[in-house]
């Protein structure tokens, strides 16, 4: 009796563990089966590097280079804004924050992490768009805010994991608090901080709703920080509702490109981590 229970339970655990892999495999399969033929029909080259996206033209044009560029610009902007603030916040929280203030900031960060992106998009529309317009800059700012909790949280735990005796060693040599933190503690935490940045990148590049609400969504090559742009995610979300046939397949191929991006980021991260170690 017991042994049957044991056997059944061990299978249940195995199945739970496999469900992740299974889900991933199904997503892969779906994207490749639907995406590859579309890319073949359009031509991989004119799909990836085409600068025109006009599905309703005759013949329709399916070039996603503007969206690739859009995603890269907006993500880079989010990194430039979010990462320095996030890391500095993490240093402050882990090394010099008074306990009373910590009790205030930390739950604030957690709350910010839980705010739905549509709400952040709304905030962007109401507060940032009136200043900078529907533009790359506005989207970067909102995404920068959005990745703050991720970057801060993971960097903070990485910094806390650095042994206190490094800090003592540096201070005992006559280094001031901030010199010890920036020259010894932070470099010792670099692989964790890097992980934080990568997760931030993943979050920014995959964000859809907030970006649609503030980026303008014009399917054209980015012209200026203050002009609108469309990201890969926005392209899919905006048109999937009414797309059919090749248009629909082209959108799935867009998702495939996005998926490959995420894959490359993760692989790059793994390689970097190895090199640091």
């Amino acid at each position: 009796m017991t042994s049957i229970k044991e056997k059944v339970m061990s299978r249940v655990f195995l199945l739970s563990a496999l469900s992740t892999v299974l889900a991933l495999a199904l997503i892969c399969l779906f994207l490749f089966i639907n995406g590859i033929p579309a890319m073949a029909k359009i031509g991989a080259f004119s799909f990836m590097l085409g600068k025109e996206w006009s599905p309703s033209d005759t013949p329709p044009l399916f070039g996603i280079l503007p969206m690739i560029a859009g995603s890269l610009y907006v993500t880079a902007g989010a990194i430039i804004i979010g990462v320095p603030i996030g890391i500095l916040t993490a240093v402050f929280l882990s090394k010099s924050c008074p306990k009373k203030l910590y009790k205030f900031i930390k739950p604030g960060m957690d709350l910010l992490a839980g705010i739905p992106s549509v709400v952040l998009g709304f905030f962007g529309m109401a507060v940032i768009v009136p200043v900078f317009g529907e533009s790359i800059l506005s989207a970067s700012i909102v995404l920068g805010i959005m990745i703050l909790p991720t970057v801060t949280g993971i960097s903070e735990s990485a910094i806390r994991a650095v042994p206190q005796n490094y800090y003592e060693g540096a201070v005992a040599l006559g280094a001031g608090h901030y010199r010890a933190v920036f020259k010894v503690i932070l470099p010792a935490a670099n692989s964790g901080v890097l992980a934080a940045v990568i997760l931030g990148v993943g979050r920014a590049i995959g964000e859809t709703m907030a970006v649609i609400m503030i980026a303008g969504n014009q399917a054209r090559m980015p012209v200026s920080l203050f002009k609108g742009v469309r990201t890969l995610t926005a392209n899919i979300a905006l048109e999937m509702g009414y797309a059919a046939e090749l248009h629909r397949e082209a959108l799935i191929a867009t998702a495939l490109v996005l998926f490959v991006f995420i894959l490359v980021i993760n692989l790059g991260f793994a390689a970097l981590k190895k090199r640091i170690k």
Binding site: N165, G169, A170, L173, A188
Partner: peptide
């Protein structure tokens, strides 16, 4: 100067 109980070279 100070030398500690547990050797604490920096990770560099």
């Amino acid at each position: 100067g100070m030398v500690f109980q547990k050797p604490n070279p920096f990770p560099m």
